[in-house]
Simulated scan of single mutants.
Amino acid sequence: MSRPRERIVSTAMVLFHQQGYNSTGINQIIEEAGVSKASFYQHFKSKDDLCIEFFNKRFDYWVSELENFISDAQTMEEKFMKSFDFLIYMNEKEDFRGCSFLNIMSEIPVDKTEIHHVIRDHKGKLRDCFNKDLKNDILSAHIYLLFESSILTSQLYRSNELIEKSKLILKDLLQSSTLK
């Protein structure tokens, strides 16, 4: 059996992603992780601290999956097209659950500044990657917004249709830019 901290984090990874932040209580996490309340608080001073740990682990997982998915791309255009294919893959794998960061952001009040900071930091890292690859602030912002909206709309409609249409827009954007 794994260590209590690992069980807590592992349990939170599933529950926060599937149920969200507000619908997941500390008592449920404690029960499903098979730890005592004292053990929980020994490792995390609050549910917010556990949520931040969840975000860090989720981000690492998601980036690792994305990098693996696009690793055989031969061109920058193919890399971006495969990035959108990755969204389809994740929708199928996770039953259109969408973005854990945006889902939780919609649940929490603005005064949870530390959680909001972590969300912005991780989203900023994704934006930075797009900008680093494209070296064109306007184009990378456009593609980033298309990428994020593809996640949201596919979750809303439980369909990959708009991701497929976004790929057509992406192809036009990339072909009309200086990136070939």
Rank of each mutant, 00 (worst) to 15 (best):
S2N: 14
S2D: 15
R3I: 09
E6Y: 07
R7Y: 08
S10N: 15
S10C: 12
T11Q: 02
V14C: 01
G20V: 09
Y21V: 02
S23E: 13
T24N: 01
I26V: 08
I29Y: 04
I29S: 04
E32L: 07
K37A: 09
A38Y: 03
A38M: 07
A38V: 07
S39L: 07
F40L: 06
F40H: 03
F40C: 02
Y41L: 14
Y41W: 13
H43M: 12
F44G: 10
F44T: 14
D49F: 00
F54I: 14
F55K: 00
N56S: 09
R58D: 03
R58K: 03
Y61S: 11
W62R: 06
S64H: 14
L66Y: 04
F69I: 04
I70F: 10
S71C: 13
Q74N: 09
Q74E: 07
M76Q: 10
E77Q: 08
F80E: 08
K82A: 14
S83V: 13
S83C: 14
F84I: 10
D85Q: 10
F86R: 13
F86P: 03
L87M: 10
I88E: 05
E92S: 13
E92G: 11
K93S: 09
F96G: 02
F96H: 03
L102F: 04
L102Y: 06
N103E: 03
I104V: 11
I108S: 14
P109A: 15
T113P: 05
E114A: 10
H116E: 09
H117W: 13
V118M: 05
R120I: 02
R120W: 03
D121A: 12
G124A: 13
K125Q: 15
R127D: 09
R127Y: 11
L134H: 06
K135T: 11
A141D: 11
I143C: 10
L145F: 04
L145V: 09
S149M: 12
S150G: 04
S150Y: 00
I151K: 02
T153L: 00
Q155A: 01
L156E: 10
L156G: 07
S159N: 04
E161S: 07
L162V: 06
E164H: 06
K167M: 11
L168S: 09
K171A: 12
K171I: 05
Q175R: 01
T178R: 08
K180P: 01
